[in-house]
């Protein structure tokens, strides 16, 4: 297991520099329907993309679309940070991008449906505000895809 207090002092200090104030006013939407009716998209900051997509740069606020009907086993990772484990993702894409688990939830009727397109950002080297314009763009595309809820995974 990993808790901040279990890491070295240097590692703790580095990670605590990532504490930031909330971005803008708090946003809260109360759910007024059953989860089994919701349309879900996955968004990760793991720097995932297909091999023939542009890799993420050293510091990069752009995103890569991941079509829901493509084979997620073909995803690769060009995240700039070297301070996290990649062996788990190499073994199982669902550890970071749980698309197969969400397909199982859909097929079991536990969620309504899955988005046509999911998204990956690369969370390293930039302050959160640098991502705002691209995040707004993704939000617009999620609306267009009639997505109700997003499941977020860091790395």
């Amino acid at each position: 297991m990993v808790r901040l207090k279990d890491l070295s002092e240097a590692e703790q200090a580095h990670l605590l520099t990532k504490n930031d104030p909330p971005l803008g006013p708090s946003a809260w939407n109360r759910l007024n329907q059953n989860i089994n009716t919701l349309r879900f998209a996955l968004i990760t900051t793991a720097g995932l993309h297909f091999r023939d997509d542009l890799a993420f740069e050293f510091a990069d606020a752009t995103f890569r679309p991941i079509a829901g009907d493509e084979n997620a086993d073909d995803l690769v990772m060009s995240h700039s940070s070297v301070n996290f484990d990649k062996s788990g993702f190499a073994e199982d894409v669902n550890l970071v991008f749980p698309i197969e688990r969400f397909r199982e939830l859909r097929d079991a009727g536990k969620i309504g449906s899955l988005a046509d397109i999911h998204y990956s950002f690369m969370g390293a080297g930039l302050e959160p505000a640098a991502y705002e314009a691209n995040a707004v763009q993704v939000a617009g595309m999620l609306k267009q895809d009639k997505v109700d809820a997003v499941f977020l995974t860091p790395v």
Partner: peptide, 20 residues
């Protein structure tokens, strides 16, 4: 879970489903 493993355990759908 360790950094890089947000769903906890590779190759274990039941574990991952509990987290989700």
């Amino acid at each position: 879970f360790p950094l890089g493993r947000p769903l906890g355990k590779p190759g274990d759908p039941a574990f991952q489903h509990r987290v989700i």
